[in-house]
């Protein structure tokens, strides 16, 4: 198991949800046993690219992990390409790219380290922080409303959508593996406490609310599940087989030639 880890010092705060995600990702990659590449944006979470030995790991710019990962996947289709980024990175500054990836259904795995807060800049509101919530480093309560990553992924066209919890390493690993096995754009929204700056959504707060869905929800119940707020459902919300971007491109080029 050790051979996937680099010797870089892991520099997250004690108790950070990222440790759980790193651990689950490492286990999932070992099980899947494929050549992989991890692309990160900017933020605490994106540092994960330095900790696991991928073939082409990239620490790119804030919000831009998806475009760079797309180029890698199109250039090396045999690679398992993973995007790791925070909610600020993927749903804030990089939201346009997140949406475009759904439309393409390119075979990338997007793992959102979702802690509702900008950690490295010391505690500003992230795009998944609910309206009117005031965290300890904020001057006043949040004046933006929260994005629902699951819904956004659905309307964007992602063909695999799941939610997981950073401290449940075993379950998270299984969901990550499902995402990796899926052919097409997959997103896993990983709920993650930020022990330093998010004094609302703590371990206790999450663990009082989360529960696992028994199975992938029926289409008729899908929106209800996606919108659920009091209790937070975990697991796979949606899964669909659809032509990937690589396949569409190939087909279009062949059509053009004939």
């Amino acid at each position: 198991m050790k051979e996937l880890r680099t010797d870089a010092w892991v520099q997250w705060c004690p108790g950070c949800g990222n440790y759980g995600i790193l651990s689950a990702l490492q286990k999932a990659l070992i099980d899947i046993n494929r050549d992989f590449s991890i692309v990160g944006g900017i933020g605490c979470s994106s540092r994960i690219v330095y900790y696991l030995k991928g073939s082409f790991n990239v620490h790119t710019l804030h919000g831009r992990a998806i475009p760079v990962a797309s180029g890698i996947k199109l250039s090396k289709p045999e690679l398992l390409v993973i995007v790791s980024g925070g909610d600020g990175d993927i749903l804030g500054i990089g939201a346009g790219h997140f949406l475009a990836l759904g439309r393409r259904n390119l075979d990338l795995k997007v793992f959102i380290h979702d802690n509702a807060v900008y950690g490295l800049t010391k505690g500003q509101a992230g795009p998944t922080l609910p309206l009117n919530v005031k965290l300890k480093a904020m001057p006043y309560a949040n004046v933006h409303d929260a994005i629902n990553p699951i819904l956004l992924a659905f309307v964007s066209g992602y063909t695999f959508i799941a939610r997981a919890y950073a401290y449940h390493i075993r379950e998270l690993k299984e969901i990550m593996k499902e995402a990796m096995k899926h052919r097409g754009a997959a997103v896993v929204d990983i709920l993650q406490p930020c022990t330093t700056y998010n004094d609302l959504m703590t371990r206790e707060w999450f663990e009082e609310r989360i529960y696992y869905m028994d199975s992938i929800p029926d289409r008729s119940k899908l929106f209800e599940k996606m919108l659920e707020k009091e209790k937070i459902p975990l697991g796979i919300f949606f899964k669909e087989e659809k032509e990937t971007f690589e396949e569409r491109l190939k087909k279009a080029k062949l059509y053009k030639q004939s």
Partner: peptide
């Protein structure tokens, strides 16, 4: 691409792979 940032980002990703 969806914008010029993505356009150059994708190209750089492909370039990283050679």
């Amino acid at each position: 691409a969806e914008d010029e940032i993505a356009a150059i980002g994708m190209a750089l990703g492909a370039s990283i792979c050679g």
